[in-house]
Nucleic acid binder design. Sequence first.
DNA 1: CACTGCACTGGTCATATTGCCCAGTGATCG
DNA 2: CGATCACTGGGCAATATGACCAGTGCAGTG
Lengths: 158, 158
Amino acid sequence: MAIDHLDGRIIVLLAREPRIGVLEMSRRLGVARGTVQARLDRLQSNGVIRGFGPEVDPAALGYPVTAFATLQIRQGQGADVRAHLATVPEVLELHTTTGTGDMLCRLVARSNADLQRVIDRVVGFDGIVRASTAIVMENPVPLRIIPLVEQAAEDRET
Amino acid sequence: MAIDHLDGRIIVLLAREPRIGVLEMSRRLGVARGTVQARLDRLQSNGVIRGFGPEVDPAALGYPVTAFATLQIRQGQGADVRAHLATVPEVLELHTTTGTGDMLCRLVARSNADLQRVIDRVVGFDGIVRASTAIVMENPVPLRIIPLVEQAAEDRET
DNA sequence: CACTGCACTGGTCATATTGCCCAGTGATCG
DNA sequence: CGATCACTGGGCAATATGACCAGTGCAGTG
C-alpha cells in the first residue's frame, strides 16, 4: 500500500513522460527492466495506479466553462439524485459531503449561457431542494498528483 | 477543435482500454492504422488529449480522506495565496471562483485527524481570511469524461 | 466543369519494445 | 541456518511502432 522511493520515481517519470516505455524507464532509473516491470505490475494491482486513460481537456472539446455546484437534497432522495446526475454528461464528478450542502458536483458548459441550461438540467429534478453554483475563473493549480506521490515516497524513506 | 464520431470512438476506446495500442485500435474501429495514428496525433496537438499520465489513487497512497475547502482571501493577496497553496502537496487542485468564496481547493489527508493538520497548513497563511471545509463521504460519480466526449461527438454528427 | 487539397486505405520496411523466461546474488527474516 | 524475496543481467520470439508509399474517393474552389 505504501510506496517507496523507487516507486515514486517510477510514477513521477511516468507522469512527466507517459509515452516512455518500460525499457527507457529502466535506463533512466538505473535499474533492471524486470524490476520496473515488476514494480509497475505491483502498483497497478495495488490500485495505486488505476490506469493510463487519456486526459481529455473539456475546454478543447468545446466546454471551456467549469463550475462547482453545491446541492441540497431532500431527505431520502440521495440515491435518486445520484442516478439523475449520473445521466448528465456535463456532470464530471459528484461527491456527497458533510457541511452545509449535501453534494458537490463539477460541471462544465459550452458558455456561461450554456451553463444555465446545464444547471437547469441538474436541478430540474425533484429531490434537489437548492443549488448554489460557483463559476471557475482561473485554475492556478490544475489537478496534480506528483507532489503527493513525492511526499508519500519520502515518508516511506528510512 | 470539435471532434467527430471517429475521434469520439477513439477516445472512448482508449479510455476503456488504455493499453490497447494503435494497431489493435484500428482493427476494432475498422479503419486503417494510419488513420488512427493521424487522428491521435491531431487530437494531441489540438490539446483535446493532454496526455496519458498514470491515474494515481490518493487513497491507495495512504490518503483516503478527500475534502473541498472554500477560501476567502484578503483583497490583493490572491497571488500570494496561490503560491502558498501550490507548495502544499495535499492540495490536489485549486480554482478561483465567483460566489461566496474566492477559491475552492481539493484536499486529501491521511485521516480525519490528519485533515486538521492539512487545513492548518492551508489556512496558516496571512492572506486567507476564512476557510470552510466539506469532507467527502462518497464519490458516486468519479471524475469522468466519456459521456461528455460522446456528447461532443454526437453534436458533431451531421 | 475541372482542379486541387485532403483524408483515408492498404501495403511495405527496419527498428525497438514487449512479455516471457532463466540462473545467480544479496538481503532480510523466522 | 535455511528460506523467501527482490533485483540483476541476459536471452528469446513475437509484436507493435514510426516512417514511408501510391492509389482513391470526396469536398470545396475557381
